[in-house]
Nucleic acid binder design. Structure first.
Length: 623
RNA sequence: GGGUCCAUAGUUCAAGGGAUAGAACGAAAGUUUCCUAAACUUUAAAUACAGGUUCGAGUCCUGUUGGGCCUACCA
């Protein structure tokens, strides 16, 4: 089975993502001020014009930064009801709401936009009550399983896997922060002809080399033999073609391939020698993977191995045959006919009775739903396998499993290189370990050049440098909409300035530094400030932005998009930096104002830390 | 060929049918007696093309052009 990592390009199913997840927000309407306001708008319209507003006509959104106000009602759609012009309608509704909603302080109408300003005490209270660890997102808790990573055991992880792992891990964390239960699982593709290829090459040409004897990481060592197999295989084909064989014939009859196929049969027959080799080499790979996973900071609650689950699928196929959902062709192969659903016929079992990719996925899905009470099973798998998952869900529902509708393919785009596709065999892959090492090295260079960590111990320095390097890499990948393809140029190293992980980390470190100083000065915990304190526009906006965290988290979960969270954190950070630059905190002489600014700063650092944590990114205390 | 997705500054990314399309990098110019200059400020620069729907379109529909992916008794 191929690893579930895209090597190739793009695909994007708009109506898939978030489809199942949306219904949860309906019953929390009253929790959010936006929804409260929307409800009042409906009442206002009914009271003023005697018409009830149908669903989706009225919309309340955040007021754009350049206008005065916090929430905005778009008046245009209501003009048919008010039978009046936008300005007048806005005034009338605004007036009504002002009188009926205590949180609304004032309003203004610009063109067709009715902007409400909420009271400062509303925002202050909201921020005070905001729980950064477990914010109230108002979603109904459910049970999720998230499958991600899903590597082959014949070669090391590459950049495509990095995106997969970071997305899978982060999405799991975001769902957890929304209050859901999440089981993180990995499906290891540890059997099949591709595994035999590296085994065979090692057996024939390896001369007993081990990770210990070579000093190589196990997954890389095994990967080298996979590449070696391919090189020799190609030579053999060339040779055969020169001897007059057609290319297609040669591909099928190259001695090395025949040997690999023979090895696969011996594996399926549980030949002790082959099983021993298989176990040994897989153990090397797992050892290597564990190191890479640890470096990336991802983990799993449960690991499935295809070698243990592929047989379940055969039973499912058998059942489907008996119930007449599947059919057998003369040659003995088993198929399902999906032409009524607009798809093709799909093979489920080969004529020799061995299973294919789909077979094991059927079995694994059944196993999972019988093991866990799942409300949703999310497969984090590249968009190149979209058709596969469409078929999977369809076949399962044809088999009568009503949980088939809980299967959700989180289809993400590939990582492209400037040269185009990554191809393992052509050596154009970006290796995960190299990439991580490289990022940490760059981070170390930059720290040294800036001289920021000169007074740290070597251990501390190393830890911080590592945190920053990984932060740059992870943020670089996660800030992009998962559904879209993204480009990675190995020539131009990932930035450490601008919209980057280190930028956010730096802001956190700076705030922590201020807080430490405030503690030393006896300002912490910050004391009283009055709700009527006169705030600048910048401070007010920052306050509002901080309060948005729970709803960003909710959207991020509903859309399965860490990018929404990442971009919010960047915006927050940018705003804070402007505030930090323009206003004194510790040097502010008015103690109430100083307290407020410490409060803002402390909350900002808390949200940055919590949000980055959900992206799997650490934030340092200093850098 | 069929199915499907994509196209936004020089480049990499944003923008739940809503206001003047935001950032970052790169380019040009500035800010340090002051809480970390990995920061902040300023300037130039974009919705592939043609229609349509709408009070309103980068966003929805149709077509054109250019690209990706799928379309295996591979996984």
């Amino acid at each position: 089975m191929l690893s579930r990592i895209p090597l190739n390009h793009c695909y994007y199913r708009k109506n898939r993502v978030g489809l199942h997840l949306c219904q949860t927000m309906v019953n929390v309407v009253s929790m959010y001020i936006e929804n409260q306001l929307l409800k009042l708008v409906k009442e206002a319209v009914f009271s003023l014009y005697g018409v009830s507003v149908s669903e989706g006509i009225a919309q309340v959104q955040e007021t754009r930064k350049e206008f005065e106000g916090d929430l905005t009602l778009v008046v245009f759609p209501l003009l048919k009801i008010s039978k009046s012009n936008p300005e007048k309608t806005g005034q009338e509704i605004g007036q009504w709401i002002l009188q009926h909603c205590p949180e609304v302080d004032s309003f203004n109408v610009i063109k067709g936009f009715l902007n409400f300003s909420l009271s400062q005490s509303y925002w202050l209270t909201a921020l005070q009550n905001l729980d950064t660890q477990y914010p109230d997102t108002g979603v109904t808790p459910r049970n999720f399983m998230v499958e991600y990573s899903s590597p082959n055991t014949n070669k090391p992880l590459h950049l495509g896997h990095v995106r997969n792992n970071l997305l899978g891990y982060s999405v799991s964390r975001i769902l957890q922060a929304n209050g859901h239960k999440v089981v993180k699982v990995n499906l290891v593709n540890d059997r099949g002809i591709h595994i035999c290829k590296s085994m065979l090459a090692w057996q024939k040409f390896g001369k007993g080399v081990t990770p210990e004897s070579s000093g190589k990481k196990g997954d890389h060592l095994v990967g080298d033999f996979y590449v070696m197999f391919d090189q020799i295989y190609k030579k053999e084909i060339k040779q055969l073609v020169q001897e007059g064989m057609s290319e297609q014939e040669a591909e099928k009859n190259a001695p090395l391939l025949l040997e690999a196929q023979s090895m696969l049969r011996r594996w399926e027959a549980k030949d002790p020698e082959i099983m021993g080799l298989w176990k040994t080499m897989n153990a090397w790979v797992y050892d290597g993977f564990d190191k890479t996973y640890a470096a990336m900071g991802v983990d799993f609650d449960k690991v499935y191995y295809e070698s243990q689950t592929y047989l379940h699928g055969k039973e499912i196929v058998q059942k489907g045959l008996e119930s007449g959902v599947f059919f057998r062709k003369e040659d003995g192969s088993v198929w399902v006919d999906l032409t009524d659903e607009g798809l093709d016929q799909k093979l489920l079992l080969r004529s020799d009775g061995t299973s294919v990719y789909m077979t094991q996925d059927l079995g694994t899905a059944c196993q999972r739903f019988s093991e866990y009470p799942l409300d949703e099973l999310i497969y984090v798998v590249g968009n190149e396998q979209n058709y596969h998952f469409q078929v999977l869900a369809l076949v399962l529902s044809k088999l009568g499993y009503d949980w088939a509708r809980f299967i959700h393919h989180m289809s993400y785009g590939m990582v492209e290189l400037p040269s185009g596709k990554m191809k393992s065999r052509e050596g154009t892959v970006v290796d995960a370990d190299d990439l991580i090492e490289g990022m940490i090295a760059t981070s170390a260079e930059m720290s040294a050049a800036l001289g920021k960590l000169d007074d740290c111990s070597p251990e501390e320095k190393e830890r911080i440098v590592r945190t920053i390097g990984l932060g740059a890499l992870k943020y670089f990948i996660l800030k992009v909409d998962p559904r879209k393809n993204m480009l990675f140029d190995p020539q131009e190293s990932i930035d450490f300035n601008g919209n980057t992980g280190p930028f956010i980390q730096y802001t956190h470190a700076r705030i922590r530094s201020v807080i430490r100083k405030a503690e030393a000065l006896g300002f912490m915990p910050f004391g009283h400030f009055s709700a009527g304190l006169s705030l600048s526009a910048k401070e007010r906006y920052l306050l509002r932005l901080l309060c948005r965290y729970p709803s960003v988290l909710r959207e991020s979960g509903e859309n399965l998009s860490p990018a929404l969270l990442a971009n919010y954190l960047y915006e927050l950070t940018k705003e804070y930096n402007q505030f930090y630059h323009d206003y004194p905190i510790l040097h502010e002489e008015n103690p109430e104002l100083r307290n407020f600014r410490l409060f803002l700063s402390e909350r900002t650092s808390g949200i940055i830390r919590a949000g980055m944590d959900l992206l799997g990114i650490d934030v340092p205390e200093k850098m």
